[in-house]
C-alpha cells in the first residue's frame, strides 16, 4: 500500500494548475525572437490539447512550463508557485512530469532502469520507486519488455518508455510534447485512454499537430499561433468555428483552419 503524504491530502490553494499572464519567452540569444509572445493562459485539471502550426511556439511553451526554459517577461505560476525568482523550484519539479519532443536516452539502460533513474532524479522516496516504476510501465503496456535494453526497442516503444518516465511520479502537471509520434493506431487508442484517466487527477497538456488526437482525447483545446493564444475552448467550440468553406476533412480541422486564417489579433478571440 502507498503511504499518503500530508502534501497530497492538503487542499489546493491555487485556482489554476497553470497560470500565465503576458508570458514572453525569447529564444536564440540577443538576436532571437519571441517564441512565446504575450501569452495569457489558464489551465486547470483535465486534458488540454495544444494545437498550432509548426513554429507556433508550442515546444517553447512546453519547455517553459517544464521549467527548462526561463521566461523573459510576464508572470507564470505552476501549482500556485510563481516561477522566475527560482523560489521553490525544487519541490515544484517533484510534481511535474515532462516528455520532450526529442528525448535522448541511455541505450545501455533497460526500460526499468531508465524509468527508475528518472524516478530517482525526481527525488521520489527510494522505497516507493520499484512499485511506481512497475505501475507506470503497466500503464503504458511495457511491463513485458521492462528488462530489455532500450536500444532493442522500436521507436513507438521508446516513446512509451518516455511516457512512463513522465507519469512515474504521479505528476500534478503533465506536459507531453508530441507524445503520439511513432505510435501505431492501436497504441494511440490506448494512449488516449491513459490520458483521459490521468486528466481526472492532473492537468495534462499535450502538444500535437494531429487534430484527431485532440478531438478524441482532449476536454479542452488551446490553439496558438506565432506565440500567442488564438483560441481556447472545447473541441466542439473549435469545430463550430469552421464552415464548409474552410479547408479540412473534419469539422475540427475546418475550425482549426478558420481560426488560424483569421489570425491572432484580427479575430475576436
Amino acid at each position: 500500500m502507498r503511504a499518503v503524504g500530508a502534501e497530497e491530502v492538503a487542499p489546493t490553494s491555487h485556482p489554476w494548475e497553470i497560470q500565465a499572464d503576458g508570458l514572453v519567452v525569447r529564444v536564440g540569444g540577443r538576436r532571437g525572437r519571441n517564441a512565446v509572445n504575450e501569452l495569457t493562459l489558464r489551465l486547470g485539471r483535465g486534458v488540454h490539447g495544444l494545437l498550432g502550426p509548426n513554429g507556433a511556439g508550442k515546444t517553447t511553451l512546453i519547455r517553459t512550463l517544464a521549467t527548462v526554459q526561463k521566461p523573459s517577461a510576464g508572470s507564470l505560476s505552476l501549482l500556485g508557485t510563481p516561477l522566475g525568482r527560482a523560489t521553490g523550484l525544487r519541490p515544484l519539479r517533484r510534481r511535474l512530469g515532462y516528455l520532450p519532443q526529442h528525448f535522448g536516452y541511455y541505450k545501455r539502460f533497460t526500460v526499468r532502469e531508465f524509468v527508475e533513474y528518472l524516478a530517482w532524479l525526481k527525488e521520489m522516496p527510494p522505497e516507493a520507486i520499484p512499485g511506481a516504476v512497475q505501475r507506470a510501465l503497466e500503464k503504458v503496456g511495457l511491463a513485458d519488455r521492462a528488462d530489455d535494453r532500450l536500444k532493442t526497442l522500436s521507436g513507438g516503444m521508446v516513446r512509451r518508455a518516455g511516457i512512463a518516465q513522465a507519469i512515474v511520479n504521479d505528476p500534478e502537471v503533465l506536459l507531453l510534447d508530441e507524445p503520439t509520434v511513432g505510435l501505431d493506431p492501436a497504441q494511440r487508442l490506448s494512449f488516449r485512454e491513459l490520458v483521459a484517466e490521468l486528466g481526472q487527477q492532473a492537468c495534462v497538456l499535450i502538444s500535437t499537430h494531429l487534430v484527431e488526437d485532440v478531438a478524441a482525447a482532449c476536454t479542452d483545446v488551446v490553439l496558438v499561433s506565432e506565440g500567442s493564444l488564438v483560441f481556447q475552448g472545447t473541441p466542439a467550440e473549435l469545430a463550430a468555428a469552421g464552415t464548409t468553406d474552410h479547408v479540412g476533412d473534419s469539422p475540427i480541422e475546418r475550425g482549426y483552419t478558420a481560426l488560424l486564417s483569421a489570425g491572432p489579433g484580427r479575430s475576436g478571440w
Partner: peptide, 18 residues
C-alpha cells in the same frame, strides 16, 4: 554530452545537486 539532458534538466535534482 548528455543525450537525456532535456529530461534531466526538468527534474528536481538538476543543477548544483547533480
Amino acid at each position: 554530452m548528455d543525450p537525456a539532458h532535456e529530461l534531466t534538466a526538468a527534474t528536481p535534482r538538476a543543477g548544483l545537486p547533480l
